[in-house]
Amino acid sequence: MKRTTLDLWVGIFVVAGLAALAVLALKVGNLSTYSMSETYQLQAHFSNIGGLKSQASIKSSGVLIGRVAQISLDPERYEAKVTMNIDKRYQFPKDTFANILTSGLLGEQYIGLIPGGDEEFLKAGDEIKKTQSAVVLEDLISRFLYSKAEDSKQLNK
């Protein structure tokens, strides 16, 4: 079979299409950030996760070290159970603190890990005991309003 210029053009077309797809996947999408080496799983219970979603990032000192794998409601404790995939390169002490934080005022929520001083490390499947829930803006505002009201009552007396 003879090769023709037609084949060349169709080849260019297909290669360009696949290249566009690769650009979309790597440059536009988040496929490049999936390239985390091996991970291990940790769990944590939160009384309120706010707007945390699966695939949300897990950071320690601001560095991305993992992603939220799964979120479900624990039917026994009535608390949110969050499963996290953490990069194998990073080990955390047993008394590590897990907070749900917000990047910026309206940004997305992520889990921040603050390592403690314990000498033993968390193993795969372990649970982080010390957690702090998401700050819900409405609670904050209502608490502020109540305290204001208390203050003005005391002033009036």
Binding site: G17, L18, K27, V28
Partner: peptide, 16 residues
């Protein structure tokens, strides 16, 4: 069937 997905990938990449 082969062309349209490739073309739409090119369209999106070009649009970005």
């Amino acid at each position: 069937v082969i062309s349209v997905p490739l073309l739409s990938a090119l369209f999106s990449a070009m649009g970005v």
